[in-house]
Computed example of a mutant assay.
Amino acid sequence: MEIKKLSFPFNLKKHDYPPLAMALGYFDGVHRGHQQVILEAKKQAENKGFQSAVMTFDPHPSVVLGKGEQHVQYITPLSEKIKIIEGLGIDYLFIIHFTAEFANLLPQEFIDQFVIGLNVKHVVAGFDFSYGRMGKGTMETLPFHSREEFSYTIVPKFSEGNEKVSSTRIRKMLKEGNMEDLPNLLGRFYTTSGIVIHGDKRGRTIGFPTANIGVNEEYIIPPLGVYAVRMKVKNLWFNGVCNVGYKPTFNKESLRVSVEVHLFDFNQEIYGEEVIIEWHPYLRKEQKFSGIEELVAQIERDKLTALAYFERNRHSF
Rank of each mutant, 00 (worst) to 15 (best):
M1E: 04
I3G: 03
N11C: 04
L12T: 14
K14C: 04
H15P: 00
M22W: 01
G29R: 11
G29F: 10
L39M: 13
Q44D: 03
K48V: 00
F50V: 03
V54W: 05
P59V: 12
I75L: 13
L78D: 10
I84W: 06
Y92S: 03
F110L: 08
I116K: 15
G117Y: 09
N119L: 11
G132E: 04
S146Y: 02
E148W: 00
V155H: 05
S166Y: 05
S167Q: 08
S167D: 01
I170W: 08
K172G: 00
G177R: 09
E180F: 11
E180G: 08
P183I: 02
R188N: 10
Y190W: 06
S193P: 00
G194Q: 10
I195T: 15
V196M: 09
K201F: 13
G203V: 09
R204P: 01
G207P: 12
E217G: 00
E217K: 15
P222H: 09
G225Y: 11
A228E: 12
V229T: 14
R230D: 04
N235W: 01
L236Y: 07
V241S: 05
C242N: 12
K247H: 02
S254K: 15
E260F: 14
L263A: 09
F264M: 06
F266D: 06
N267A: 14
E278P: 06
H280S: 07
P281S: 07
K285Q: 13
V296I: 15
Q298W: 01
R301N: 14
